[in-house]
Design a protein around this nucleic acid. Structure first.
Lengths: 247, 247
DNA sequence: CCCCAACTCAGTACGGTGTACGAAGTGAAG
DNA sequence: CTTCACTTCGTACACCGTACTGAGTTGGGG
């Protein structure tokens, strides 16, 4: 409903904010806040209370301003979340600076992302496709550089980065959900199985689920195999095959 | 806050609902609804409006009852979503019935899940860890059976299923987000690039992002490579390596 | 210098959410 | 018939994002 100067819908406003390319205000009172302070406060709240616990009222309260004041800096909550996501990507080591083979670099990148997702769980609950900000871009570029010397076609390099990133996100989501549930309900994974296991075994009692029965009997659900690491290695194995074929 | 008959928190209520193991009511008026009708109505709403568009009021309206009546059948919205997820898993072909190698069966399962996620997008926005219902269990069992004859240790079989499932979820999420954005904003992927591309290129102009510049110049972002299929094949390549080593 | 346009700040209000609570009606068991 | 477990549902509460509006502030053009 808001109309801007040239009549076109403001598709690029979000990106201009991310790259801090807003043309500075000319007139009017000095702003009491700036974007970075707002983003910082919002990240602190999201770290503590999750993305659901993040509200514009809370951000404003923490900064000691009225709720609606935030809307002079940020057009909507979605744009704020974009800014938060990009800010988080400023943390962490850039993978292409790591010593070693493409595989060592890529592993480093994957594990770094894994840690970032665990440090800022709320990033997992934000939708994946956001306008690219400078920090996200820098991490993406660094990841691509890890694969640049492999002889893989450019389209495959992008696909590999895409696939690994998606995989990490998915596994991290699973992991933090498990961790959250434990500390929210106070019921550990072991306790959950102790509570639900017998009921589950009752339902499994027939011959409707033979394979599940078998792996459960073999103790596969209590295995200490690290699924994240296992899957990462399988993906890299597959990529290695392509690199050998291409080289 | 609600206390139940024996004082223990009702941890198993959700699972009893899923497996339809509620002890039938004895006294009182005949229920006007049943669980399946509620779940069905909720799925229809979620298919149309997404999980965000699903509200208890809407479900009740569709069924012509008062909102709070639903709470005699379902303790909370979270449990309703669990029931919806399990109901969806009743659709689709069970992979172990497919002809062919373990790889053919697993591919079939992966693509079937991919389709299911696209048919019911809202399943992607529900948290991953839910109490296991009978239909989910049946699909899980079938997936495990696809890998049962490979000689892989049980713990690895579970890990492979876990990894592939997580991968599919992640890629499907990305895919439907893209599709949604297109039809919600009316801006196609190509239009988005036409709009944002030049601005992006401007930010990329320095030498800060050499790898991104390179792959963009090579047209890797417009490539018609199917990322989902590419990543799936890489994972299966990796698993094949383990199977050969184990066999 | 002065004034007013441009800008910041914020109070109120709206339409939405999940669900706790309690009253009223129903029908099978004792 | 009485009792009371059970179903139904209106109301209420505490939130949410943000549209709208008006008041206060200040820098640049005349």
């Amino acid at each position: 409903m808001t109309h801007d100067n040239d009549g076109s819908p403001d598709l690029t406003r979000g990106m201009r904010l991310l790259w801090r390319a807003e043309n500075g205000a000319r007139r009017g009172p000095k702003p009491a806040l700036d974007l970075d302070r707002i983003v910082q406060a919002a990240i602190e709240i999201a770290d503590a209370d999750g993305l659901m616990g993040l509200s514009m009222r809370k951000v404003a309260d923490r900064l000691g301003v009225g709720t609606m004041s935030l809307y002079t800096y940020v057009p909507a909550k979605a744009e704020l979340v974009s800014l938060m996501l990009d800010a988080v990507d400023a943390e962490g080591v850039l993978p292409h600076t790591v010593e070693g083979s493409w595989r060592a670099k890529t592993e480093s990148w994957a594990r770094e992302d894994w840690r970032l997702y665990h440090r800022h769980e709320w990033t997992l609950h934000a939708s994946g496709r956001h306008p690219l900000g400078p920090n996200t871009m820098r991490r993406f570029d660094s990841a691509l550089r890890s694969l640049a010397g492999t002889g893989l076609p450019e389209a495959e390099i992008v696909a590999v980065a895409d696939v690994i990133d998606t995989y990490i996100r998915g596994m991290a989501r699973r992991s933090v959900e498990m961790r959250d549930r434990e500390q929210r309900t106070g019921v550990s994974e072991a306790q959950w199985w102790a509570e639900h296991g017998p009921m589950l075994d009752e339902y499994l009692a027939g011959d409707a689920f033979p394979a599940v029965r078998e792996v459960r009997a073999a103790g596969a659900f209590e295995s200490d195999l690290d699924s994240f690491e296992y899957g990462l290695q399988r993906i890299l194995d597959g990529v290695e095959g392509r690199i050998e074929a291409a080289g």
